[in-house]
Each structure stands twice: as C-alpha cells, then as structure tokens.
Simulated scan of single mutants.
Amino acid sequence: METRYTAAQLRAAAADAVRAPSLHNSQPWRFRLRDGGIEVLADPARRLPATDPSGWGVRIACGAALFNLRLALAVAGIPASVRLRPYPAEPDVLARLHPETPRRPTPAEQALYAAIPRRFSNRAPFWPDPVPADARWRLGEAARAEQCWLELLIGVSAVAAFAEIARGAHRVLERDPGYRAERDEWVRVTPAPDGVPVASGGPRGEPHDPLPSRGFGGRDRAPGRDFEPEPLVAVLGSVGNTAIDQVIAGQALQRVLLAATDAGLSASLLSQPIEVHTAREQLRLSLGRFGTPQMVLRIGYGQPGWPTPRRPVDEVLDLPAP
C-alpha cells in the first residue's frame, strides 16, 4: 500500500491542478509536499484585494484546483483521502491529501480527467440550441456528488429576474475605481503566463445583452453575433458559507465544469452577483434554497474559443530539499 506521495507524483498531478479556473486567471494556489502528503495552499500574494477582499474567490479557485488534483491522482492509480483546513494555526493550508489504497480509476473519473485540458471559460456568445434534459441532469448530479446544489434557471422570466440582480451587482462593482483598475491590470495584450488574454476576454458588452460581462477583451463582436436571448443560467450553492464550505464549492464547481465539457457544452462564470453581498442575498431569496450561492454559470453550446495560459508548474510547487 502506498503511504507517501513523491515529488514526481505531485509534479504530475499539479500540472492538471493548475488548469482550474480563478478570478482574472490569477492562479492563487500553491502545492506542497510535506511528510508524504500533498497540501493545497492559498497564495495570499495573488489575492485580488479590490475584487476579492474576503478571500472567497481564492478558496473557490483552490477548491477547483483541489478537485483536479484528486482526479489526477485517482487516474494515476494513487487516490487520496482529503482533510480540509487541517491545521487551525495555518489557515492558508486549505487541504491535505494522503494516499489511500491504490486502485484502478473508474470510467467516470477517466472521462472527467480527459476533460481537464479541454475546459476553459468561453465568454463569447453561445448558439441558441437548448441544453437537453439529460445533460442538465448530469450537471446537477455533478454538484450533488460534491455536497453542493445546482439550481438551473430556465425560461424567460427566471432568467430576466436573475439578469436584473446581475446587472445591479455589475453596476455596483463598476462604480469602484479600484475594482476597475484591478481588472484592467489582469488584461493581457501580450503573451503572459497569467491574466486574461484579449483573445479570451469575449466581446465588448452591449446595453441589450441579457447578462453583464466584465469586459476583459473589449473587442467589437462580429455582425449577427449577439448573445443567446435565453441563456441557461446555473447557480451553484453550498450548505453554508464558511471557508471550508467555499473550498467544497470550488470542488463542486470544477466537477460541474468538467461534466459540462465532457457533454460537449461550453460555460462561462458570472461572479458579480456573488461578489456583492446584497445581490447574493437577493439571489438566495429568489431561489428559495437553503444555503449560500457560491457561483453562477452561463452554459450552452458554443464555438471553440481560446484557453487562458498557466504559469509553469515548478513556480507553484514547494518541495522538500533533496
């Protein structure tokens, strides 16, 4: 039985972990090998003080990276047991993974793992084709498998009610010059290992768009390429809103995104209604759900886009001296 992870195993799994999404593609994670276990740490140097003053976004991103890490280890035949926030005196250590009994990966694990390099945020307009019921069911099951819930907003009235909340939150955020400046700092017009390249930023927002966009790209859209009039909007939520709940929600988010990718779907993230406290509470009340909304997704069928870059794996590893 495997009792310790090795540096080579961590390096291989971390190459998949870093493909997780994060606010502004800030990549706020580190991975440490300590006493034969792998630890996932928040990187406070990469927190966004204006966009994410509470660290919620860092914990969501690290949870998503944790899910990729779990998946990579399972597919390598060395699955992990996970303890969240294992050290009260070290709050930046969000998870510790210890080897379990080696086993063969399941077909479901293999399918989700194969989706990791194909998953990225698609901020362009989607096609009007509806997402079929079986695919919607798969997305809900993915959230439930990670102890979270996924509420799908289907139909004109449900989406319009959400859009009003989202646009209100967007206006609140855009009034903050620090927020706007921080977003602009992460837009990349030349190649870089982090941030959002202009090509991946999506088209410039228009007043008639059904949902707000952050405007990373600022590019004019092609004629006839308006956003879909009835997007499938999904709200991901957790039981509570502690730091552990947020890490759990990050894992659920990544599982949902990989399930969507495996089903041939595209997705983009809308966190504005989560970032503004009053909008988040409005959203919670409108859903009538027990728990806390943690992320909003726009899901549909779209033209292939451009993945965002990642830092070299060795930049995010902490390994013991040889």
Rank of each mutant, 00 (worst) to 15 (best):
D16K: 10
L23V: 08
G201D: 02
S26A: 14
R11P: 01
V75P: 08
P107T: 02
V82W: 07
E141Y: 02
W56M: 08
V131S: 06
S213C: 12
R104Q: 12
A145C: 10
L236P: 05
R136T: 00
S238P: 05
A17C: 02
P309S: 06
I165C: 04
G288Y: 08
A76Y: 08
P107R: 14
A279F: 02
D194V: 00
G195A: 03
E230Y: 11
P107Q: 10
E315D: 15
Q282A: 14
G57R: 01
V82E: 10
A259Q: 15
I60F: 06
P49Q: 04
P125E: 00
H24M: 06
V75C: 11
T261Q: 01
R204Q: 14
P86F: 01
F120R: 14
S81K: 11
R11V: 07
L10M: 07
L258Q: 09
E39N: 14
P207Q: 04
Q147W: 11
V196Y: 01
R289V: 13
G168E: 13
P193G: 11
P125Y: 01
D220V: 14
L66E: 02
P102G: 11
L287K: 09
A321E: 12
L297A: 03
R171L: 12
P86V: 00
W56L: 12
L150E: 00
E100T: 15
P304D: 00
Q282N: 14
R47P: 09
A72Q: 06
P21N: 06
L265K: 01
R180G: 12
V172H: 09
L211S: 00
V256R: 13
L84W: 06
A64I: 04
E90C: 09
A222N: 01
G37S: 12
A135C: 12
E275H: 06
E100R: 15
I78E: 13
